[in-house]
Amino acid sequence: MPGPPTDLPTVVLDALTPTSQRLVVNRRGSTVWEVESPGGHYAVKLGHPIEATPDWPAQPWTALAPAREGAVLHSLGRDDVTYGEWEYGTWNIQPWRAGPDLYVLWEPRRRHTPPLDPHISITPSCIDALADLHAKGWAHGDVQPAHFITGPDRVHLIDLALAQGGNIPAQYDFPYRGCLVHYEAPEISRSVLTTGQAEATPEADVYALGASLLISATGWRAVEYPDDAPRPVQREAVANGNRRPVKAPGELGELIDAMLSHDPKDRPTLQEAGKALS
């Protein structure tokens, strides 16, 4: 395939009969569309394989990710999600979640020098959204600020394509090989470096939430490495615990430091984190 799709596939157009559509994410291996139709307001995700380049190996799993997420959401009891296959991979259709993500929400306070204390009132809602997923037996595996959508009534935790905890149809499943390294726990990075894959866990999700809160509050990622470092170099820095000397302002800082503990056993549970803020 020469590149990402420039339009929605026929199977999606037939399912939704859009009145408007807008491409909102276009990245290696996937696109996300905002679609309005007579039946409602939807997010449509399309996956396609990534071809090998001189700098990157081929990534066939990206073609399967939308259907895998659909299967996870069905396992969680979501009957408002559909998924299937198209010419180059898989797709899913799910309700559109309106609102800024966590990083965008805190951006105005981050711009001040020094940064202002973030409105921590949203943090318990992020904790609750992740805790609800864990209570159902799943680890998210890809916690990052962009995946907490702060809607008018609640925080939505999105993008569950990498979640682990239940049965996935074999034709759509693939091994967990870590996530965006900025939010990867040391034990995940170490396992990926050693074996090529890892196991998503609640403890790693807690670390990722701490890293998400830190970068959203300060603009700085938790671990120090060159911005253009290759992914293995990034993971070595994470595995070795090369923390930046940066602290989130206000009472949130102490909690984030605990969530970023190198040893998973030293991190607070989400229940403990919620109590610390109450």
Rank of each mutant, 00 (worst) to 15 (best):
G70V: 11
A71T: 14
V72T: 14
V72H: 00
V72N: 00
L73Q: 00
L73D: 00
H74F: 09
H74E: 15
S75I: 04
S75Q: 06
S75K: 02
S75N: 15
S75D: 15
L76A: 11
L76V: 10
R78F: 03
D80C: 01
D80Y: 02
T82N: 03
T82M: 03
G84Q: 05
E87Q: 11
E87F: 12
E87N: 07
Y88A: 14
G89I: 02
T90R: 03
T90E: 07
T90L: 13
W91R: 04
W91I: 02
N92I: 04
N92S: 15
N92G: 00
N92R: 05
I93W: 00
I93P: 01
P95K: 13
W96Y: 14
W96F: 15
R97A: 08
A98I: 05
G99F: 04
P100E: 12
D101F: 04
L102H: 05
L102T: 05
L102M: 12
Y103H: 14
L105V: 15
P108H: 11
R110E: 10
R110N: 15
R110M: 11
R110C: 09
R110F: 08
R111M: 11
H112M: 14
T113P: 09
P114L: 14
L116I: 09
D117E: 15
P118H: 06
S121M: 09
I122E: 12
I122K: 13
I122M: 07
I122G: 04
T123M: 03
P124F: 07
P124E: 07
S125H: 10
C126M: 04
C126A: 15
C126G: 08
C126Y: 04
I127E: 01
I127C: 04
I127W: 01
D128C: 05
L130Q: 00
A131W: 01
A131C: 08
D132S: 08
L133N: 03
L133H: 04
H134E: 06
H134S: 13
A135P: 07
K136I: 11
G137E: 12
W138R: 09
W138N: 10
A139G: 12
A139E: 03
A139I: 10
H140E: 11
H140I: 09
G141E: 03
G141H: 07
D142F: 12
D142I: 15
D142Y: 13
V143L: 07
V143F: 08
V143K: 01
Q144I: 05
P145H: 09
P145G: 08
P145K: 00
H147A: 10
H147C: 06
F148M: 13
F148E: 02
I149M: 06
I149L: 13
T150I: 14
P152R: 07
D153P: 04
D153Y: 13
R154P: 05
R154V: 07
V155D: 02
V155C: 10
H156M: 06
H156C: 08
H156V: 07
L157Q: 03
L157P: 03
I158A: 01
I158V: 15
D159T: 10
D159K: 05
D159V: 10
D159C: 08
A161G: 12
A161D: 06
L162M: 13
L162A: 09
A163V: 12
Q164W: 09
Q164F: 08
G165R: 06
G166H: 08
G166I: 04
